[in-house]
């Protein structure tokens, strides 16, 4: 009881940011800090351990792993990683995933910002109805629509193609995108639009030359969310893509792990390398993803 009473003001009440670099050193020893670091360390351990095991395991050989599943690589072997990196299948799947995710992102950003622009900045009958129609989409998970979707795509000849994956993905990503973008576009001051109108700019000119550049951060947020969602998608590719040459990375990892289930080291290496793009992408876009999530929640 007494320790936290002392700890709280020292940690929570530091308005001066200049004191930042040396936390927990002033005013005696703060016992709250080591405890917090310990907890943080445990969380990091639990989070990272499985991933680290997969990565490190890729440097072992299958006999090594069979002899002792949890030992350190001895010696470190690069063959598993090398054979995945030189495998055309792996790169084909990376390519398929990239095409699908890029097409989804571009499609959803373009369609989404256009619709959000009208919903946010035009006044017309039926505007609320259109907005509600898109927001209602949050209630329809792709699971509910997947059986009819399968038949539809089969009838229009998109089944088995990457378009059969990214077109529905665009459609299902539209609600979130529009919900995030509408408040964003509304927040751009009307004075700008008035000024543009007085200077003789059309509505379209305003959209193209003023609104789009100003809404850059919002567009990046929805784009990153759409990209990650598409990159990781499983259900839709699983049911729509049957030919191995069209497999995206998640399907490829799964196929590889069943096909080479005896060669654990190869599976570990393949899985590690398949993780890498998402982790790299996330580290680069970290702020955007986190910002987008909070924006989506407050939105």
């Amino acid at each position: 009881m007494t320790t936290p009473t002392i700890a709280a003001p020292t940690t929570a009440g530091q308005p001066e940011p200049s004191a930042g670099p040396v936390p927990g050193v002033r005013r005696g020893f703060d016992w709250g800090q080591p405890f917090v670091y310990l907890i943080a360390l445990i969380i990091v351990g639990i989070t990272i351990a499985p991933v680290a095991y997969i990565w490190i395991g890729g440097f072992r050989t299958t006999p090594q792993i069979n002899a002792d599943p949890s030992a350190w690589p001895d010696p470190w072997v690069l063959t598993s990683y090398a054979s995945v990196i030189t495998s055309p299948t792996f790169w084909l799947q990376v390519g398929n995933s990239t095409i699908t995710a890029l097409a989804t992102t571009i499609g959803v950003v373009i369609l989404g910002v256009m619709a959000a622009f009208v919903i946010a900045r035009y006044e017309f009958k039926g505007r609320d109805a259109i907005y509600s129609m898109f927001t209602a989409g949050l209630l329809f998970p792709i699971t509910v629509a997947i059986l009819p979707l399968y038949l539809m795509l089969k009838n229009i000849g998109l089944l088995g193609t990457l378009a059969g994956v990214f077109v529905p993905q665009i459609a299902f990503a539209l609600p979130t995108t529009i919900i995030i973008l509408v408040p964003f576009l509304r927040a751009i001051p009307a004075e700008l639009e008035d000024a543009a109108a007085i200077d003789g700019t059309s509505r379209f000119g305003f959209f193209w030359r003023i609104l789009l550049p100003l809404s850059g951060p919002g567009l990046v947020t929805v784009g990153v969310l759409a990209f990650v969602g598409s990159w990781n998608a499983y259900l839709l590719p699983l049911l729509m893509l049957s030919d191995a040459s069209t497999y995206t990375l998640p399907l490829g990892v799964q196929q590889f792990s069943t096909q080479y289930s005896q060669d654990t080291a190869a599976v570990l290496a393949f899985t590690s390398l398949a993780m890498l793009p998402a982790i790299l992408f996330f580290t680069l876009a970290q702020r955007r993803i986190v910002g987008g999530l909070t924006g989506a929640v407050k939105g």
Partner: peptide, 30 residues
């Protein structure tokens, strides 16, 4: 607990978020 000034806060946030970024397939197979 983590909502305080501490060393490595950004790194911690990145690490905590890693499982969420991995696809379900990769996390599940792992």
């Amino acid at each position: 607990l983590l909502n305080r000034r501490m060393r490595g806060r950004t790194l911690l946030r990145v690490v905590i978020f890693i499982p969420y970024v991995l696809s379900e397939v990769i996390a599940g197979l792992s």
